[in-house]
């Protein structure tokens, strides 16, 4: 019961933060609110027993992502221009999409149901295997690095590729070109 109450309070705060992001035009405030949103969602992950995920979200969402977004608005603009378009069409689109998604959830098993298909199939084997085969107390680590090692290799490669992409877009190439042009003049 107390968990449900905590969940609902956290949700109210999350929704309020998201609505504030919709309304505020100052980008600095928007970026800070997105950091707040990440911290609140990390709290929610703790109540949902996902401590590893909460840890990552707190470090990544509230730390690095805020720094990078602040860097971006320092290089671009501080305020958002008032939109001239009406918000009606997007609102209708969003409500229809949401209604379809709610219809999709009606068949889903209830929240926390121990007999949900997701908890019956592979997870018990991983839980037992982590004791017998791998001997690592943190089951998340043993799945991440051993059972699903290929997945993680792929994810590492994606992080690597994204880093190379940012370097290709932003590294000193243009500056060097600019210096060359100055020399030509």
């Amino acid at each position: 019961m107390i968990e449900t109450l905590i969940n609902i309070v956290l949700f109210a705060m999350l929704v309020l933060t998201a609505l504030a992001v919709v309304r505020i035009n100052q980008l600095f405030a928007v970026v800070m609110l997105s950091g707040v949103f990440s911290l609140l969602s990390a709290l929610l992950f703790v109540t949902l027993d996902a401590v590893d995920v909460a840890f990552t979200e707190a470090a990544v969402g509230a730390g690095i992502s805020t720094v990078l977004m602040l860097g971006t608005i320092a290089l671009t603009a501080r305020t958002q221009k008032k939109s001239t378009r009406s918000g009606m069409v997007p609102f209708i689109v969003v409500v229809v999409t949401g209604a379809v998604l709610v219809y999709g959830t009606l068949d889903m098993p209830g929240f926390g149901d121990p007999n949900a298909p997701a908890s019956l199939h592979v997870a018990p084997e991983y839980m037992i295997g982590s004791i017998k085969d791998i001997d690592v107390p943190n089951v998340v680590t043993s799945i991440l690095a051993s059972y699903r090692g290929y997945d993680t290799l792929g994810e590492t490669a994606v992080v690597f590729t994204a880093g190379i992409g940012v370097l290709a877009l932003l590294s000193g190439l243009t500056r060097r070109r600019r210096e060359d042009e100055e020399e030509d003049v």
Binding site: D49, A50, T56, E57, T76, A118, S119, A123, I143, G163
Partner: peptide
């Protein structure tokens, strides 16, 4: 114990998410 499999999937997705977000921010700067 709660099911650890979604935790693993989302844990990696968060880090990949920040990497792709930074790529998008780099595009915005350009």
């Amino acid at each position: 114990y709660s099911n650890p499999l979604p935790h693993v999937l989302i844990l990696t997705a968060i880090v990949v998410g920040i990497a792709t977000t930074s790529l998008a921010l780099a595009l915005i700067i350009r």
